[in-house]
Structure formats: structure tokens, C-alpha cells
């Protein structure tokens, strides 16, 4: 390895090649990431995340907002600190007439480099905490009055959904019980009672920005209000055994006519307990 460093011979005209390539890669990466984010913000505005995955519940926008606030604040400081790092790297580069020095004095100018970011971090944390707690309270602590109540029972490895039927009351004879297929009315506040038969599962509906653990022995209550009709995915989002990846389900958000048809159809076929093909 007789390879010679160019800066060794020339007396140091610039950065070390390694530092230069690291800087260029990071800089290009930052330009690409910031450019993409800016493009999405200008093209999508508040719907930045909703462009990638539909936002389909009344609180989906609030949760996306929290994620964007956190990503924005953390992202800004990530790139700002990288920028400061590379500026310092450039200022202290090897060049003729400058000796390396170690700064270890009690200098007020040095203190500011610690105390200012410290206060800024606390201020930014406060913003994140205020925004997050407000949304958490709206989504998880309080719920609007229920239009309908359903029961979701998770087990290894499938979902049982109990719909209230035409009388809109759970645990009555006209309840509709389905496997892996949940039907809910559009624009109605749906409360759910989440249970598990065996181990921990997680009822996750990505388009609702809803994710709730199911804990065996407990009935966990929550709510959502779908705002767009259609069929969407339900996932188990808590590792629950060998079949965890094989336990998806579908949620059907139905218009009043569609939901009435579902209720009528289920009432007519009430004697048929059978399920649907899984392919």
C-alpha cells in the first residue's frame, strides 16, 4: 500500500478525500430528501401523508399533523446540525499555517454552543408534547357519542366481528357475526370493544390511523368515524405467533343503502354459519 495522499505532497490544499466524499454524499442526500419533502408539501399541503396512504377517519388528519410536526421539527434540526457540523469541518480543515488546537477553556462563547441548543431542544419538545397530548386526548381519552357499537375479538390467527344487527344493540339474537370481514356504516361514530381470546394482538386500520392493542382478559374500548366509503385493510400489528403475517382482514365502509343491504342479506342467511373462501 504505497498509495500516497495528494494533500501530503502538496502541503494540504483541501479536505481529505474521505471527508470530501462523505460531505458530498450527505449534501446530495439532504438535497434529495429536502427537495422531495418540499415538493410534496407544495404539491400536497396538509395532505402530505394522505397522498401516500388515504386518510379515511375523522381523526386521521390530526394524527398526520402530529407526525408532520414531529418530522418537520426533528428533520429541521437534523439537517441544521449536519450543516453546522460540515461548516465546522470546513473551517477547521488542514491548511498551511494552521496548527491543530484543542479547545478546553471556560469560555462563554463555548457555553453558548451547549446552552442554546439545550433550550431549543426543550422548546421544541414542548411544542411536540402539547400537539401530541391534545390529539391523544381527542382520539384516545374522549369519544363522541356512539351511533353504533361493534365487538372485535382477536385470536390466533383470525378476527371475529360482532355487528349489532338491525336493532343496533349488541348481544341480541339478530347480531351478525363474521370472520375476517367487518362492515361499518359511513359517517357514523363507531365504538368498538376489543378483546383477545389468547395472546396480545393489535387491531390496526392504517387508513383510519387507528392502532389499538388487544390484551387477553380485558375489553378495550375505542372509536372511529369513517369518512369515505370503500374496502380497506385491517392488520394485526402485534407479533402473535407463527400465523401473525397470515391474519389480515377487510373493513367495508358502507353507504346507508349498502349497509342496509348487508343487514338484510345477513338476516336472510342467518342460519348459515359458514365463512367465505380465503383466496
Amino acid at each position: 500500500m504505497a498509495e500516497q495522499h495528494p494533500s501530503h505532497e502538496s502541503g494540504g490544499i483541501g479536505w481529505q478525500p474521505l471527508a470530501r466524499s462523505v460531505f458530498l454524499t450527505t449534501f446530495l442526500g439532504a438535497v434529495i430528501v429536502v427537495g422531495t419533502v418540499l415538493f410534496y408539501i407544495f404539491a400536497g399541503g396538509e395532505d402530505l401523508i394522505a397522498r401516500l396512504i388515504p386518510a379515511n377517519s375523522s381523526f386521521a388528519g390530526d394524527i398526520d399533523f402530529v407526525i408532520l410536526v414531529i418530522a418537520g421539527i426533528v428533520g429541521f434540526w437534523f439537517f441544521a446540525s449536519l450543516f453546522a457540523f460540515f461548516v465546522l469541518l470546513y473551517q477547521s480543515r488542514r491548511r498551511p499555517g494552521h496548527k491543530p488546537e484543542y479547545l478546553a477553556k471556560h469560555d462563554h462563547q463555548l457555553h453558548t454552543w451547549v446552552s442554546w441548543p439545550h433550550w431549543l431542544v426543550i422548546a421544541c419538545d414542548l411544542i411536540i408534547i402539547i400537539v401530541a397530548v391534545k390529539v391523544w386526548h381527542q382520539v384516545k381519552q374522549v369519544a363522541p357519542p356512539a351511533d353504533t357499537v361493534i365487538r372485535v375479538v382477536a385470536q390466533q390467527w383470525g378476527w371475529t366481528f360482532r355487528h349489532p344487527g338491525t336493532d343496533n344493540k349488541l348481544d341480541t339474537v339478530d347480531d351478525i357475526v363474521t370472520i375476517d370481514r367487518l362492515h361499518v356504516p359511513l359517517d357514523q361514530v363507531v365504538h368498538f370493544e376489543l378483546q383477545s381470546k389468547d395472546v396480545m394482538h393489535d387491531f390496526s386500520v392504517p387508513v383510519f390511523r387507528l392502532k389499538q392493542d388487544a390484551v387477553p382478559g380485558r375489553t378495550i374500548k375505542g372509536w372511529f368515524k369513517p369518512v369515505k366509503a370503500g374496502a380497506f385493510d385491517i392488520q394485526c400489528a402485534e407479533m402473535c405467533g407463527i400465523g401473525h403475517g397470515l391474519m389480515p382482514a377487510r373493513i367495508f365502509v358502507e353507504t346507508p343503502e349498502q349497509h342496509a343491504a348487508f343487514l338484510e342479506d345477513s338476516a336472510r342467511n342467518a342460519s348459515v354459519p359458514g365463512g367465505q373462501s380465503i383466496y
Binding site: Q155, Q156, W157, G158, T160, I179, G243, L246, M247, G275, I278, Y279
Partner: peptide
Amino acid sequence: GLRMRPMLRT
């Protein structure tokens, strides 16, 4: 039976 059901997806 519901434990066995998703296995048919394989």
C-alpha cells in the same frame, strides 16, 4: 379451526 384457517394461505 380458526388457527388452521389462515395456514391455507400458504
